[in-house]
């Protein structure tokens, strides 16, 4: 099962320019798809439409067989809980790292102790116990980015949408992130990553999509696309 976009057209309120033009694609569970393209090409917009946050002006978004924008509020919440979007600039809640990791579970009705216990397990698994009680204001940019990604993973999504996920990470955290993405895909979670970073695409992608001025101009295996993109860049 998957998320299917059909003939998506989107523009921001007050803007004359189409941010997405007739984009059709599908994101599947267990697959890592990378979206690349120049600044302003529509990568973030495509992620937010796929994350069921932005309503397209034309076209349909079918999530696990259901037309999302025709559903009632309970149906929408049910599907949004399967598809989690992680912002490029980390948005963390005031409080500790542990609270941030537990927040998504608290929204799902977990008790405080259950949610904190699950967050603690994640912290132990990744060996970041030193961040456990650190106030959010004391985290570095890389740590904040890592926590915002882990917060999304804590709620066991079926599809994880990551906007420039390694932009602020050092080499060690970047390696950790790449291995986590591979692990997630192996466990059946779909990952969609928007990035300019071709080496990240090369190391994790099953498929690379190229956006230009809101249109999807290429969608193929990484080896077929990355080589020509590098040549163009050179």
């Amino acid at each position: 099962m998957s998320l299917k976009l059909e003939g998506i057209w989107f523009k921001y309120p007050g803007s004359e320019r189409w941010a997405l033009r007739n984009v059709s694609t599908e994101f599947r569970e267990g697959e890592v798809a990378v979206i690349t393209g120049p600044n302003g090409s529509g990568k973030t917009t495509l992620l937010k439409v796929s994350a069921l946050l932005y309503r397209p002006l034309r076209g349909s978004v079918r999530a696990w067989g259901r037309d999302f924008w025709r559903l009632g509020s309970d149906g929408k919440i049910d599907l949004r809980r399967k598809v989690i979007y992680v912002h490029e600039k980390p948005i963390l809640l005031k409080g500790s790292t542990l609270y941030n990791l537990a927040y998504g579970l608290l929204l799902r009705g977990y008790s405080r102790s259950e949610a904190f216990k699950a967050a603690d397990k994640l912290i132990e698994k990744l060996g970041i116990a030193h961040l456990r009680d650190k106030p959010i204001s004391m985290l570095s940019a890389g740590e904040a980015q890592l926590i915002s990604i882990l917060r999304a993973m804590a709620v066991n999504p079926r599809l994880l949408l990551l906007d420039e996920p390694v932009a602020h990470l050092d080499l060690r955290k970047r390696r950790l992130m790449v291995s986590m993405m591979r692990e997630l895909a192996a466990s059946g979670v779909g990952c969609v990553i928007a990035t300019h970073d071709y080496s990240l695409a090369e190391s994790v992608a099953d498929r690379v999509m190229v956006l230009e001025d809101g249109s999807l101009v290429a969608d193929d295996k990484p080896e077929a696309i990355l080589e020509s993109l590098r040549e163009q860049k050179a």
Binding site: I91, L93, V155
Partner: peptide, 24 residues
């Protein structure tokens, strides 16, 4: 823009999203 969207993507109900926006 920030917390409202974050709450929605983490699966919050309208009420939970409003609560988060106001608290933050």
């Amino acid at each position: 823009e920030s917390y409202g969207e974050l709450a929605l993507t983490l699966g919050a109900t309208e009420r939970q999203a409003m609560q988060l926006v106001l608290v933050q």
